[in-house]
Amino acid sequence: MSDQREIAIVRWPGQTPSAEDGLARLLADYHLRTEAEKGEAVADVDGLPDRYRIEVSDPRTAFIDDVVLLALSGDTSVGCLVVTAPTDGQSEIKRLWTDPAFRGQGIASGLLSAALAHATESGATDVRLSVWKWRTGAIALYERLGFTVSESWDERDLLVCMQRAL
């Protein structure tokens, strides 16, 4: 018998009182881990580049035009993803993160499926994303969901750009 709680995917803001705090924690974990993986480790959120520190300190403003999806286990935020409103028929997925203690439960797949459904409902004809080359598990997940490597729109080294038609 499994002791796992059901994971719910909700759109943010406004879903639960603790969602904003949980989102900030997930974004902080995401950015701190990414900086460390890039070889630019920082001790805490205060050491993050401004654009990332703003996302953590004020996600409501940072993602004002976007939809943030949260995966909740009970009232605990255990995963997040941001999907942008379509521009010229294209949405972008960013900030996919699952709390390491909850990985292997299909949370990232659920968030991605919800993001693709939202993008379709919003009128997007395709979705793009970028992922660091060393995140091979994430790349494999994206490929399983129909994303393919595309021409880069970002000049950063080791960043893989991917796209999927809806």
Rank of each mutant, 00 (worst) to 15 (best):
L72Q: 02
P13K: 10
A19N: 03
R60M: 07
E155I: 13
M162F: 06
A19L: 04
R164P: 14
Y52W: 15
K38W: 05
I7M: 11
R25G: 05
Y52C: 11
L32E: 11
T76I: 05
A114K: 05
V160H: 11
F147N: 01
R11L: 06
A24Y: 01
R95V: 10
A119F: 06
D157K: 13
Q105L: 06
V83T: 09
D50K: 14
G47M: 12
V56H: 12
I93K: 06
G79L: 03
A43S: 15
F147S: 00
L23S: 04
A28H: 12
L23V: 08
Y142G: 12
A138W: 06
W153S: 13
L111R: 02
R135M: 15
L26Y: 01
A41N: 05
D29V: 02
L48I: 08
A41K: 07
A165V: 15
D154Q: 04
L141C: 00
T148Q: 10
D21A: 12
F102I: 00
T61N: 13
R103M: 10
Q4G: 01
V127K: 01
A117K: 10
T120A: 15
D88A: 11
L111E: 02
I107K: 03
F63M: 02
S150P: 00
D154W: 03
R95M: 09
S91N: 05
R135F: 11
G14D: 07
W132H: 14
R60T: 13
L111M: 03
Q163P: 04
R5F: 04
V82G: 03
D3L: 14
V45E: 07
Q4F: 03
G146D: 06
R53D: 04
V83H: 04
W153K: 14
P49D: 09
M1T: 14
A108T: 12
V68I: 08
S73R: 02
W97N: 08
D88F: 00
G89M: 09
L27V: 01
I93T: 10
D99F: 03
T98H: 00
T98V: 15
D65M: 05
P100W: 03
G123S: 12
R25T: 12
E92R: 13
H118N: 09
K133G: 00
D154C: 04
A41F: 06
Y30G: 04
A43Q: 14
A41L: 05
A114S: 11
S109V: 15
W97V: 11
D46C: 01
E20L: 11
L23Y: 05
S57M: 09
D21N: 10
L141P: 00
P17D: 08
Q15S: 14
S130E: 15
L116M: 04
D3N: 12
D99L: 04
S152F: 03
D157R: 13
W134Y: 14
H31P: 07
L145C: 14
I107A: 01
V42R: 12
V67T: 10
F63I: 00
R33Q: 10
L32H: 09
V56W: 14
A41C: 05
